[in-house]
Design a protein around this nucleic acid. Structure first.
Lengths: 130, 130
DNA sequence: CGGTATCCGGAGAGATACTG
DNA sequence: CAGTATCTCTCCGGATACCG
């Protein structure tokens, strides 16, 4: 039997899924919650993911909640108390994203070096055109 | 010893790397070249990755070349003949991205279902505001 | 075949300030 | 604490057409 979904097909819904996963801040939120190993509060996430703005964090969390990857629990106290945690589905995304994160952190030097070389040869070739 | 790079740090270069990997079409090109197992030509890639436009494919390939993930070989014939292949660094990205692709294709139904439920409860709650 | 050259729109990212 | 409310702006991605 053939696969039900194929990302190479133009109108396959898996492309939408991929788009969500690839969204700028998704990997950070999932990774943060995974790193922590338990529920985190809004401010805690914001502190952990350095440089993220509250607006973007909210948007990302809402999207992940909609997709069933993150569970939002409002304890309704005053002052407010809201917890975010990975759902089971979210947990299943831990390993793949951890691998990507690991790859990124590991290969920074390689890529920087390649970029240097590319910039260098571009500059060197700059006079040769036209 | 501590890690040299940490994606959670605001100005860590690994964030740029992550941004590149997360770029809309990166995973498709890497995956296509991995699926194929050998070099592919421009038109071949375009046919394989359904729906990609030539402009975007070119941009993606150039970026991947700059980062040292893809090697471009121009055979200089007429008609033109250009091959693209994964470098060793590109190969090392196969496994992580394959995992993500696999996850996406596998969990489409779960996510679609969650989205349905979210849309449904949003509609149900629509009258309750204000 | 293997790309370029344009033009364009809109989503998403960011900064900043404010609120229950 | 946990978000909203705006506003701005970039740039990414897509469509279309053309070139050596």
């Amino acid at each position: 039997m053939s696969k039900a979904y194929d990302v190479m097909a133009a109108s396959c819904p898996s492309r939408t899924v991929l788009h969500r996963i690839g969204a700028r801040w998704t990997i950070f939120v999932i990774t943060a919650l995974a790193d922590q190993g338990g529920p985190m509060r809004f401010t805690e996430l914001k502190r952990y993911i350095q440089g993220i703005t509250p607006k973007v964090l909210t948007e990302t969390l809402r999207a992940l909640e909609t997709d069933g990857l993150v569970l939002r629990v409002d304890h309704g106290d005053n002052p407010p108390h809201v917890d975010y945690a990975l759902t089971e589905l979210g947990q299943s995304l831990r390993a793949p994203l951890a691998a990507v994160r690991e790859w990124a952190e590991t290969h920074v030097p390689d890529i920087l070096e390649s970029q240097q070389r590319a910039a260098g040869s571009a500059a060197g070739a700059a006079g040769t055109h036209h």
